[in-house]
């Protein structure tokens, strides 16, 4: 099968194709899942890019090993991957805490999101502020907020990833958002939100 032909195929079906030795399916899965796991892990690990890449690679490694026994329709591939990544991130956070290394200082790279340099700089500042605020949240709240608002998972999917009930997910995301708002409350003007509102 040609690589281009994989764009319409579900992740589930790609897993089966991968297990049957289909090379384009391997490439398609790698390109679909890796960026999402990396983004999630980066945010859970407070912007530590090197550790996030290790988590992403390890998650994908487990995905390849699981593929031959993958059961279609049981779990979404992304949900499975986020669950594995969550556990790997928790292990690394515990390890860091044991060693007394809290990497809250690791600021993410500024994001190139707009046509103008000023806009890019402001977006970059906002991303740094968000990453820093996320890092102040308790682990469970951070996981729930990132999965809900940054990765776009539904509450039942988050419940599967975090192995908790849907009501607990709703509670975690609500509390997480309130905590984020509080952490960012003193930076609203600095992040340019006042100016944006005035411009409207």
């Amino acid at each position: 099968m040609a690589f281009d032909a994989t764009s319409e195929i579900s992740d589930d079906a790609l897993m089966v194709l991968y297990a049957n030795g289909d090379r384009p399916a391997a490439l398609a899965l790698a390109q679909r899942i890796t960026p999402r796991v990396l983004g999630y892990a980066t945010r859970l690990l407070g912007g530590d890019r090197a550790e996030a890449e290790d988590v992403a690679q390890e998650t994908m490694l487990r995905l390849w090993r699981t593929a031959p026994s993958w059961r279609q329709g049981e779990t979404k591939v992304t949900t499975w991957a986020f669950r594995v990544a969550t556990n790997l991130c928790i292990d690394r956070q515990r390890s860091r805490r044991r060693k007394g290394q809290v990497a809250l200082d690791d600021a993410p790279e500024p994001v190139d999101s707009g046509p103008g340099a000023e806009g890019r700089m402001q977006d970059g500042q906002r991303m740094v502020a968000l990453e820093t605020a996320l890092a102040t949240l308790p682990d469970r709240q951070r996981q729930a907020v990132v999965l809900r608002h940054l990765e776009g998972l539904t509450n039942p999917e988050i419940a599967t990833v975090l192995d908790i009930g849907v009501e607990a997910v709703e509670s975690l995301t609500a509390r997480g958002k309130r905590a984020l708002a509080a952490a960012l409350s003193g930076q609203r003007d600095a992040l340019g939100y006042k100016d944006d509102r005035d411009a409207d």
Binding site: Y18, R36, T42, E53, Q57, A67, R126, M127, A129, D196
Partner: peptide, 30 residues
């Protein structure tokens, strides 16, 4: 707005990471 902005711009994987992941995939593929 801030969360939506962040969702639109996830950290992009480096070519080195993609190379490692792809190499693993092909090495472990049945």
């Amino acid at each position: 707005d801030l969360l939506a902005l962040a969702a639109m711009h996830p950290p992009a994987p480096s070519p080195a990471l993609m190379d490692r992941v792809t190499a693993d995939a092909l090495a472990l593929q049945p």
